[in-house]
Write a protein that binds this DNA or RNA. Sequence first.
DNA 1: TCGTTCGATGTGAACGTTAACATTCCCGTG
DNA 2: CACGGGAATGTTAACGTTCACATCGAACGA
Lengths: 374, 374
Amino acid sequence: MAPDPSATGTRMTSQALGSDPVPGSPRTGSVMRDVARLAGVSHQTVSRVLNGHPNVREATRQRVLEAVEALGYRRNLAARALVTRRTGTLGIVGFETTLFGPASVLYALEDAARRAGYFVSVTTIRDLDRRSILDALERLRTQSVEAVIALAHKPAITAALAQLPDAFPRVAVGGSGGEDTVSSVRVDNVTGAGLATRYLLDLGHPTVHHVAGPADWPEARQREEGWRATLEDAGAMVPPVRPHDTARRAWGAGIGYEEGRLLAADPSVTAVFCANDSLALGVLRALHEAGRRVPDEVSVIGFDDAPESGYLIPPLTTVRQDFAALGQQGIALLLDQFDHSDRADQARTPRQVVLPPVLIPRASTAPPGQQPHA
Amino acid sequence: MAPDPSATGTRMTSQALGSDPVPGSPRTGSVMRDVARLAGVSHQTVSRVLNGHPNVREATRQRVLEAVEALGYRRNLAARALVTRRTGTLGIVGFETTLFGPASVLYALEDAARRAGYFVSVTTIRDLDRRSILDALERLRTQSVEAVIALAHKPAITAALAQLPDAFPRVAVGGSGGEDTVSSVRVDNVTGAGLATRYLLDLGHPTVHHVAGPADWPEARQREEGWRATLEDAGAMVPPVRPHDTARRAWGAGIGYEEGRLLAADPSVTAVFCANDSLALGVLRALHEAGRRVPDEVSVIGFDDAPESGYLIPPLTTVRQDFAALGQQGIALLLDQFDHSDRADQARTPRQVVLPPVLIPRASTAPPGQQPHA
DNA sequence: TCGTTCGATGTGAACGTTAACATTCCCGTG
DNA sequence: CACGGGAATGTTAACGTTCACATCGAACGA
């Protein structure tokens, strides 16, 4: 089968619509005129009924509805979109959606969009080169989505969003937030990291080590920043942080394990703040292997509150992000842009929503030099 | 002659298109005629170029493409869909997509669909009542998707799929597979469970206990079945299994923890096969708390091979499912239906693809009565 | 040299819906 | 009793493509 007949770059790639490959005829069923005939009215009246227009006599409305039911009639969205210039579809740009966080956000986004009466078209970014990000956006625009929501964990994604035409509604969810060019929803990573760090300091630890996420994720940077600032505020020594390049598994337990081995070898380490729960899980394992007890000798704290984190050995103290709220607020921000899109005045001004993280204390943290208790 | 499943209300829920709420005018940009004028040809020639028709002079083609580029022209999918009766969109019905497995499948589906030139519209099922499943399907059909792929972990979902009109292409991914009414892709859970169980028996364990998944998930049932059959084959005693109702977290570490505590209290238990890795994680924790060493005293094995499983304490032996392949095969099966949809002969015959799971031996399993070694 | 054929292009008519405007009918009012 | 007006409905024309067919050349074989 011919994948792509057409010529130029990515632009007009023949979609599945390309004439050759797939035959398939959806066998339309009935159209508005059929309903109209059956109900003994004009197609326009049918349209009015279906769109909830006020000026239709109740008896007529009923007759039309019955005809609709009898024929199993379904409106043709394409025809509707053609004339109304509205598709009722939101585009979602996904990224790393097999990770727990992004997957949860995606889920919440879809839910909120549906509740708001929108369809959702999803496309996922695999590689982060400029081209594939723009491709994703292009794909969505080809579909005439009315707005785009991106899981904007990487700056490049937010940047691409910023380049959409002025009037195009968009929201960045998660990730950076530094950009004031795009409306965005994110969790306050700096505060979250501060929460974790302060908690450990308050327990009596002289300082807190940090296992960082990939350096090219703003979220990772912000957590590091929050950690560092808190230490400095407290006048504590700031231990060095080993940077990770964006290697695929840079948020993963494997990296946590490697880092954990190094930390385990350093007897001065009594507290570790990890940029997420997976990293913490790896650290936990490394400490365990090295015979360093948690939390008796070393306290460990994570970020995210993944579903399993409460059942690790020991249950992981962590900072919870409300992923569901992230998605809901994202859609809310979008609807807000729709509402104001007529009065262009302050509609263009991007809004930033920042969600507060919450510390979830569990058994992986304790004052330093503690005796075992379980 | 298409039996329509619909029946109930919900039918014509006013989508976001409903006249009132959102104004927003996407400011169309240029249309085909504009391109035609600029290139000095007819709109039909533009259409031909864009669709890769053969009979266009090279010079003309170039001129058209330049005009397209110059105007930033983009085809209107709605207009195209209206006349071709093809939307180039696949509908995906998601379920529990925040779990690692489903999220991975979703990801793979989207990827494969995109490669095949299709757009993807996603809708997620929250509650499993008949109504909301049908609603999901209805939503998708309103969008004129050309096919539906469902994450069919529950029988009710597969059943709903089976009720689509005869000619409607569909695929069930994951889950049951028992139904011969719908083409489906799934992992061979029975074999996978057998692999795990046999592995433990071969290590010398007299029998293997089982922590089951929710009873209303066919996957859970099949794993239990594979486990049971293998024990019976080997003439081993079959320990009782505690059933879990479909409580939300029935696949989760919490349940594993509860079960693990019971198992830990029984000194005769030397090997446990868990229906997934999360359950195993909970079991691991319970055993640890009870002071029963893994794998020295008790061996534990999971299912899925989640990314973290190699970093648990100890690293978890598990059965890997190839989620990516699940998605790819799902799309492949769909495309296959498209190809044959003209010759209705054997096209209707549902095809079943069953993927083999692989045992991943790690450190959570060992012969019974082993001495500690690390 | 002249039809015949095929390649390159143009013309007109769908596709199924909604928007705009026209029409009908009935009511209340002067 | 005619008239203005609004409620209920119908009629026509878009929307932007693609398809089917018509047209116009030029190349080709006899």
